[in-house]
Amino acid sequence: MYLNLKDIRFSYDNGQNVVLNNFSVSIDEGEIVSVVGNSGSGKSTLLRIISGLEDRSTGQVELDGDVLQSSKVFVQPEKRKIGFVFQDYALYPFLNVRQNIEFGIKKLPPKERKRRIEETLSLVKINELEKRFPHELSGGQMQRVALARALAPKPRVLLMDEPFSNLDTELVGELRLELRSLLKKEGMTVILVTHNQDDAGFMADRIIQMT
């Protein structure tokens, strides 16, 4: 299995409020998995643990044979090579679209960096938006930019937290079709968190229900 979560437990307030209790899941490389569940069921916490933004109380996270989190190991988020599309996109307001995409690949040599930016801009079809700032974009455009920024460093896994929740219903229908084919084309392993069963069913190879 490519991504393995074993017996993950997570709680707030010094163990008073248990969000995840001995949760385990395994995901294949290239698989798109949707995680659905009610508010407070721990969907987003799961993504935050995988990305390293939260630390679990017990259990282990493994990616492609590397232990990312266990009782002895904690790999910092910046070392994990995991992409994350946040619910509110979190695009940097002081950078334009091109600079936002460039943000995570600054360490690449200039030529390769430029090629990667062009590639990503074309992949998500936003070439004409590259000079715009986030406040000049629509909800759908922001989502594409956030996706491009997350894909540019070629992450090992892509995590998406409620990617359609801020969009109009009409736009969602069009976008999710495009998004699925794009992610499949890239062979990306994806975990998508949503509260919408339709989105989950349409996007995913497999659905995980959290209670």
Partner: peptide, 25 residues
């Protein structure tokens, strides 16, 4: 908070996040 977290998952350490994200924001 979310901008800082986003910078970390994009591969920037706390030092670089301070310079490129936290200070401008």
């Amino acid at each position: 908070t979310q901008w800082v977290e986003s910078s970390r998952v994009l591969g920037l350490g706390m030092g670089e996040t301070l310079r490129r994200v936290i200070l401008p924001l």
